[in-house]
């Protein structure tokens, strides 16, 4: 499985990436929306985990563009503000689901599995 993590908190992304790699995934990370989009264009991942609060174009905008070019990549949103509003807005824009920070790796894995199931069908 090929996962792209997009979050401006480098310490967080790199650690999360390492943990996912331990669990046998291929993980790439990006520090902001533009970098993420570039990677998607370069080599589309199977899944994408996207933080909503980022400098630059921001999470929702990034999501919109990814969905425009690659509608079949499931995107899981991370929100740090406890608001369900942005999460719901994201799901309206085509995100697979949203999670509130701090996230639990097991739950993230569960969401990824669900997304994989859905993708298979």
């Amino acid at each position: 499985m090929n996962v792209l993590l997009v979050d401006d908190e480098v310490e967080f992304v790199t650690t999360l990436a390492e943990r996912l790699e331990i669990r046998g995934m291929t993980v790439r990370t990006a520090g902001d929306g533009e970098a993420g989009l570039a990677m998607v264009a370069d080599d589309p991942p199977d899944f994408m985990v996207l933080d909503l609060m980022m400098p630059g174009i921001g999470g929702l905008e990034t999501l919109k563009r990814v969905k425009a070019s690659h509608p079949d990549i499931p995107v899981i949103l991370l929100t740090g503000r406890g608001s369900t509003k942005e999460g719901i807005e994201g799901m309206r824009l085509g995100a697979f689901d949203y999670m509130m920070k701090p996230i639990d790796i097991d739950q993230l894995l569960k969401k990824l599995e669900e997304a994989a199931e859905l993708k298979k069908d």
């Binding site: 908190e9 967080f12 650690t15 390492e18 331990i22 740090g80 920070k101 701090p102």
Partner: peptide, 17 residues
């Protein structure tokens, strides 16, 4: 929240090890 997330991931990673 953010530092918490980092602590959480780091500790998670240690646990993964």
């Amino acid at each position: 929240n953010n530092p918490l997330q980092i602590i959480y991931e780091k500790a998670g990673l240690i646990k993964d090890f």
